[in-house]
């Protein structure tokens, strides 16, 4: 029994049972399939994170985001006058996270590629783009860049899904996707 020392002192010489050998083989091969599926997706799948990232001072990131907003703001929304920024397709677009907002609102064109930059000015935040369901961690001092192509038109919420203090549940941003 498993609570006593093995009766057969040279237990390591016992032959394996057929069902065990078969299951170990199947399980090992399944592990290989899962391992290579991740690699395969990097070559043929369309949803991969680039892993392009930079160290950056929060002030510098804020400046870049403000510069983009100044250039491309088309209107403001809500009583807080949050700018809605409509950058040129194919360019670098910035969204910053801070307690407790995603800034600014981005307006993107359907089917166009953008280099989306994400960083935080204070604590960690979670970029959760809904309902398409893209979830990325946002750190202070790190600027993550990913190439993103919206494929549906409409309004998308950016929920913060990393706990960031008492106002965490009010931290919602927006990405608007328009038909060209």
């Amino acid at each position: 029994m498993a609570i006593f020392p093995p009766e057969n002192r040279v237990w390591w010489n016992e032959p394996l049972h057929r069902p065990e050998i078969i299951w170990i083989t199947v399980a090992f091969l399944w592990g290989l399939v899962m391992f290579f599926t991740m690699i395969y997706w990097h070559f043929s799948g369309q949803q991969n994170l680039s892993n392009e990232a930079y160290r950056i001072f929060p002030e510098v990131y804020a400046e870049r985001t403000e510069a983009m907003a100044e250039k491309y703001t088309v209107r403001t929304e809500t009583n807080l006058d949050i700018p809605v920024v409509h950058p040129k397709p194919g360019t670098d677009v910035y969204m910053l996270a801070r307690l407790w907002e995603w800034w600014p609102i981005l307006e993107l064109e359907k089917g166009q590629e953008y280099r989306l930059h994400l960083s935080s000015l204070d604590w960690q935040h979670g970029f959760s783009l809904q309902p398409t369901n893209i979830n990325v961690q946002v750190h202070p001092g790190y600027e993550m860049v990913m190439t993103i192509t919206p494929t549906q038109a409409g309004e998308f919420g950016v929920v913060c899904n990393e706990f960031c203090g008492i106002g965490h549940h009010t931290m919602v941003g927006k990405i608007i996707v328009v038909d060209k």
């Binding site: 809500t78 009583n79 949050i82 979670g126 929920v159 899904n161 549940h169 009010t170 919602v172 941003g173």
Partner: peptide
């Protein structure tokens, strides 16, 4: 989202 008090976002400036 996990670790989130209000999935209706009642107090948020921008809703979802």
């Amino acid at each position: 989202s996990r670790r989130h008090w209000d999935m209706t976002f009642t107090d948020a400036a921008i809703g979802f």
